[in-house]
Design a protein around this nucleic acid. Structure first.
Lengths: 200, 200
DNA sequence: CCTACCGATCGGTAGG
DNA sequence: CCTACCGATCGGTAGG
């Protein structure tokens, strides 16, 4: 009898695929390689999945779900814009850090999906990034953030967050909360010490 | 008679490969696809190159050369650490922006090289990133930068820079100098306006 | 979950 | 730069 703590074969397939995909990329990972890692014959995989792409889809959309869920769990009413951006960043990094392998697939291999899933994925991502965009816009309007290029700022924040999964490859799992906090602090206040700009 | 302005077939192969690799990735791009884009037969490619991987190598190592050359052209003696970091960032972004396609290959597909080139590449990259690391270390010691986690700060700066090539895909070529300056400004001083942290 | 096998495509070579 | 072709590997199916 299986409990919720028992990993189904399906879970094992997804988990192993996440590991192989992040290592060699989706296209360079063969079903034979995946099967051999699981100790079964390649054809046996198709008793559990319909296609290679279906694995990719399930990884990408599960990650998308987690990103949204984490943002939506933030008590936005209680926070000002600076605190809110801080919380956004911490939440986002938390999702990445507890899904190191899947994150790499999510960011690098989503483009190998085909329509209609590809279009749906793009639309989800746009919607998610829009939430950062909107927060920054509001914050700039009421003076919580500097009035700088909105689009540029949003892209910088997302880029800084979205490569964190590459920082700790092979190292022991870092404290996601701490990384999120450091990142938020750096992006909000910068790394410059004084502004005196003294020459050498 | 060919002048330095004439593109050799070799140049065309590399340039077309850069375009296809950035679009679909190295492993998902076939030699047949590359040949057809050039209007020749797949086998004809091998009159100019030895292997598919050789194309990848030439792209990655040319990019590495450009990154080093641009950093080394900075008049370091005349600048304080904040100005120097500013110059590092502008130079780095400049190289990415004038090599949009090759940059994508450089950052995403380098891992498909094999030894000995793979090891050599890793070592070059480590050496390059070390220059940022050293600059930050010096700057923290003499008070130009805040005393924050060195490794973390360095990774954040590199991440923010290294995804810029994805920001303007398909759009008209942006002003590299301006992007570099904006990025340096944001990383040095942050996006926070005041620090009063007033509640809503 | 296995054996047996499919057509398609891969990077690359021989020989001109 | 072409024609002709190689062995290897690909994702996936049939049938049990």
């Amino acid at each position: 009898m299986s409990t919720i703590l028992t990993k189904t074969r399906m879970d094992q397939i997804t988990e192993t695929a996440e590991m192989l995909f992040q290592e060699r990329g989706y296209t360079a990972t063969s079903m034979r390689h995946l099967a051999s890692e699981l100790g079964i014959e390649p054809a046996s995989l198709y008793a559990h999945i319909r296609s290679k792409e279906e694995i990719l889809q399930s990884i990408c959309f599960r990650m998308a779900d987690e990103f949204f869920a984490e943002l939506e769990a933030i008590p936005s009413e209680e926070l000002n814009d600076r605190e809110l951006l801080h919380a956004y960043i911490v939440s986002h990094v938390k999702v990445i850090m507890r899904n190191m392998n899947a994150s790499a697939v999510f960011f690098n291999d989503w483009k190998f999906m085909t329509d209609p899933e590809l279009s749906e994925f793009r639309s989800l991502r746009r919607r998610y990034e829009q939430m950062f965009y909107t927060l920054l816009e509001t914050g700039m309007q009421n003076g919580d953030f500097k009035l700088i290029d909105l689009n540029f700022t949003c892209k910088t924040i997302l880029s800084a967050m979205n490569l964190t999964h590459e920082w700790y490859k092979g190292e022991q799992l870092p404290d996601a909360n701490q990384i999120g906090k450091q990142l938020a602090e750096l992006l909000l206040n910068g790394i410059g010490g004084d502004n005196t700009n003294h020459k050498k």
